[in-house]
Design a binder for these strands. Structure first.
Length: 544
DNA sequence: CGTACGAGCGCG
DNA sequence: AAAGCGCGCTCGTACG
């Protein structure tokens, strides 16, 4: 229950990077309101702030993140409440304190508080609002999603500070390789297309900057158009880095991965050009997104979001986490090979197997899915892969998810139980405008019904994705409470550090047991098996 | 020069 | 007829 001593806190900070980041932001004023107190207090430092583990706030991921940095103490000790997390799990459209105060307290706060009522009053107003809002939202809460989220917040602060160590030698080697691949593709490409010519660019020319009134050649360029707007065009051979020039060269509407894959498998100069573009894109993506930004850094850390911010930036609608600056959830294998545990530690990582499919089966009760997934010798992704893609499991997996969430005639035939559930769920979402996730979490996601078909697919996708991630979240909470040193979460995978002189097989078994036990609790019919690996680097041969 | 936006792509 | 969902980051492109 809520301890009567819970302290409402709200910190005012400055953001040297421009974007709020509790790992580096500077505390300007700490404000707090003791329960039952008549007036809020504030201080420019943390010294007078009561040192209690019972805290309440609006977005405590941020304030506790600051507090922990300035006044370190074990994050496991905190028992926090967060009106932002409450509002998020309840499917509120407007997560801002101001909006919630208007809606539930019927209090209109000033739009420009700092100019009109001064910083002290504005600060006190927010503290007062949070204190009054909390019991109202808490009373409305159904399901356990909020209790999992609030318990997870300290764990995610921990993760946001920890990160991986970057191996500079491996990174430099990887850069060398990718740069070579890039320039090889680039030179071969430019030789290949040297004598072709396409429209390179077309830019609007304003009337006063027209070259006299000429139409036709203008330097190397051409001026076209006869109306009030004219364009200056240039021509030449396409650049390997220019999507629009390549569209003209290949004469297609899009030069994405699928198109390149199909064309590269054929014969002739255009097939070779497609192949070179493939090589270049892959290497360039690695360099620009993964390698160069981390060059010279000794750590890769990310800022985890459990909800969107007050202005609905970041976070995920389905209950998933997100990570930014850096994104820890989309690292490429080539980068994973450069990421390692700090000296004296190893990385332990547990992956749930087919957790989202298992969730879909449990939610819908579809007999075919349940029996297929209950048989450890069957693999639905592999079955689809064998049927359609010559055993390519990755493509089989893509196919399964596509069909499932399109949820059309194919699924009605293959998985009638799932289809029936989806129809019922979609009707309910259309009636209420909200998708309510599965028991016992009851996470609510607002669905914008104007989205047409997209809305239907969002609605059908939400419960399975939500169930999968709350199982992972619940497992993280248990691991965190059991003292595991968490590093990262990638939707259905959890990473932790262990001392390198630890009993690795034992630790792997303990990790697996906590994750599998959690899955059994929420997926009573199927459970979900967990593969646990341990190594110095994220991507490396498993130890033992 | 800075800004906005869509496309593309990394991961689940 | 055609159609997954969920993220964050970077680029090219166009414009003022």
């Amino acid at each position: 229950m809520v301890p009567t001593s819970s302290l409402v806190i709200d910190f005012e900070t400055s953001t040297p990077t421009g974007k709020p980041d509790f790992r580096v932001d500077v505390l300007e004023r700490a404000g707090w309101l003791e329960s039952g107190a008549e007036v809020a207090k504030w201080s420019s430092c943390l010294c007078p702030l009561p040192n209690t583990p019972y805290l309440t706030g609006h977005n405590l991921m941020y304030d506790l993140g600051i507090l922990w940095r300035l006044r370190p103490s074990p994050l496991q000790r905190y028992d926090i409440h967060d009106t932002l997390a409450l509002a998020y799990g309840q499917g509120e459209e407007d997560l801002s304190l101001k909006g919630l105060m208007q809606k539930y307290l019927k209090v209109n706060t000033d739009t420009f508080p700092y100019q009109r009522i001064g910083v002290e009053q504005a600060h006190g107003q927010d503290l007062w609002g949070t204190q009054r809002l909390f019991p109202i939202l808490r009373e409305r809460q159904r399901g356990t999603c909020y209790d999992i989220d609030r318990a997870l917040i300290p764990a995610l602060i921990d993760c946001s500070y920890r990160g991986y160590e970057i191996d500079p030698e491996r990174l430099e080697k990887a850069i060398e390789k990718a740069e070579a691949s890039c320039s090889r593709a680039e030179t071969a490409f430019s030789t290949l297309v040297a004598d072709t010519s396409v429209l390179l660019s077309r830019r609007k020319v304003t009337r006063k900057r027209w070259p006299e009134d000429t139409i036709g050649l203008y330097g190397d360029d051409v001026v076209v158009g006869d109306g009030p707007t004219r364009y200056r065009e240039s021509y030449g051979s396409p650049g390997i880095n220019s999507p629009i020039q390549l569209q003209r060269y290949f004469d297609v509407p899009s030069v994405d991965k699928i198109f390149l894959q199909l064309l590269a498998a054929k014969e002739g100069p255009k097939a070779l050009a497609a192949f070179l573009r493939q090589q270049w894109v892959a290497a360039d993506k690695l360099l620009d997104t993964y390698f160069y930004p981390n060059r010279g850094k000794d750590q890769l850390t990310g800022l985890f979001n459990i909800t969107p911010t007050e202005d609905m930036e970041g976070g995920a609608g389905t209950g998933r986490l997100s990570s930014e600056r850096s994104n820890m959830q989309n690292q490429a294998p080539a980068m994973e090979r450069c990421l390692r545990a700090p000296k004296g530690f190893l990385i332990l990582r547990g992956d749930y197997s087919q957790i989202e499919l298992r969730g879909s089966a449990e939610i819908s009760g579809d007999e075919g899915m349940l029996t297929a997934l209950a048989d450890p010798n069957r693999d639905l992704h592999q079955e689809a892969a064998d049927r359609f893609f010559g055993g390519n499991r990755k493509r089989g997996k893509v196919f399964n998810f596509r069909e499932l969430y399109i949820c059309g005639p194919e699924v009605k035939v293959a998985y009638p139980g799932f289809y029936a559930w989806a129809e019922r769920h979609w009707l309910e979402v259309q009636r209420t405008g909200v998708s309510v996730g599965p028991e016992p979490f009851l996470h609510r996601r607002p669905i914008p019904l104007l989205g047409g078909d997209h809305a239907r697919r969002q609605a059908i996708n939400h419960p399975p994705q939500n169930l999968a991630v709350y199982i992972t979240k619940a497992a993280m909470v248990r691991l965190f409470r059991a003292g595991w040193m968490l590093v990262n979460q990638v939707h259905d995978a959890i990473h932790a550090y262990i001392p390198e002189d630890d009993n690795v097989p034992l630790r792997k078994a303990q990790f697996r047991e906590i994750m599998e036990e959690t899955a059994r609790e929420y997926l009573p019919r199927l459970g979900a098996s967990v593969e646990v690996k341990c190594s110095k680097y994220w991507s490396e041969e498993d130890l033992l």
